[in-house]
Design a protein around this nucleic acid. Structure first.
Lengths: 194, 194
DNA sequence: GTCTATATAACGATAGAC
DNA sequence: GTCTATCGTTATATAGAC
């Protein structure tokens, strides 16, 4: 039962993505060359182009996969029955998900400027989808008199922006645990809309 | 009283620095070429090398000037007479200074990885000097039984790391004013050491 | 699918005329 | 001090042998 070459090759593309992710996070997209990626994967440069048409696509696939997996994971969550607990649940989910993927989060924030316009629009669309989840939670809450918030759109942007910071907090001060961070942000967010 | 060419030239170097700062902050050091900088300044590439020996020096001068000016400004402050107000004063000063220089702060954080080892050490030295100001305030406070803090070195690193975030907060949520941010952080920092 | 070799373009940096 | 021209290097991406 010899393994075929093909079954190894299936592992090559994810390996390229993984190594590119590390390198992009460490040195920045523009500072990383295809040769450096190939060397770390254990290939020659040319071989990379069997898996990705260009360098830009390595980056955009990383970002798109990150956002799609975020959305997918949310939609697989078993939501709390009580709708007044939905906002806390969202904050909890968001922090949990992002703390576990520091490199993806970092390049999703840093390397947006290196996407070409088409890929940028794709990411923007996915971000809007995610933001819509939160703004719907907020406007539902407003309708049920749970929250008071005039601009739910803007509030959801501000909240997600705020939550994004969580990764740096977590890194810079190891004494704050993940549950503590969740608590802090839940309080801040709840205060912001009540 | 015709202006000499020389007096214009005196303005050229700061202009290069300023434009490089904007471009580095916008696109990242590695993604910006000397040709792009020259074009925005209104020069040909070669002329840049009359002011900077290489691209690396443009970046390192920006970062070094940023740190030195931060230290200089601190040492020119009239400190509060009551030493128990020193920590609040530092937090206030730090936030004020950094909110007014978002681009410098951003590249001082982002582009460290693009400094060569020598320049990195220079910046590290300046950062340590700044950090020493805070850790001295803390250890003085501990000696006077104002604060309780076992590891003043680590605490000062954590606090500065935390304060660094302030620029993103300020941007992401325009509803929070600078004085409010100062208040929030003063409370957090004081809580952290008492 | 990976290799070597190469096309083509852009980069940082330098040289010399003015 | 700025220009044009260019060197040497490196980059992305492609072509063709295996």
């Amino acid at each position: 039962m010899a393994r075929t070459l093909g079954s190894y090759a299936k592992l090559t593309k994810p390996k390229i993505s993984e190594i590119a992710l590390h390198l992009f996070a460490e040195r920045g997209y523009a500072a990383v060359s295809m040769r450096q990626i190939a060397a770390k994967v254990g290939l020659q440069v040319g071989a990379l182009y069997n898996y990705f048409p260009d360098k830009q696509t390595i980056l955009s696939e990383l970002l798109i996969n990150h956002m799609e997996s975020l959305l997918q994971t949310w939609h697989r969550q078993k939501l709390p029955e009580k709708s007044d607990k939905l906002l806390e649940f969202f904050v909890d989910f968001h922090i949990e998900y992002h703390l576990n993927r520091p490199e993806e989060v970092f390049i999703a924030y840093m390397e947006l400027r290196n996407l070409n316009p088409d890929n940028f629009k794709k990411i923007e669309k996915l971000r809007n989808k995610y933001e819509l989840i939160l703004s719907n939670i907020l406007s539902d809450g407003v309708n049920k008199n749970l929250f008071t918030c005039e601009e739910t759109k803007i509030a959801s942007l501000a909240i997600i922006g705020m939550l994004k910071e969580v990764n740096t907090w977590y890194k810079t001060d190891g004494r704050i645990s993940a549950p503590e961070i969740k608590n802090i942000y839940q309080q801040i967010v709840l205060k912001a809309v009540t």
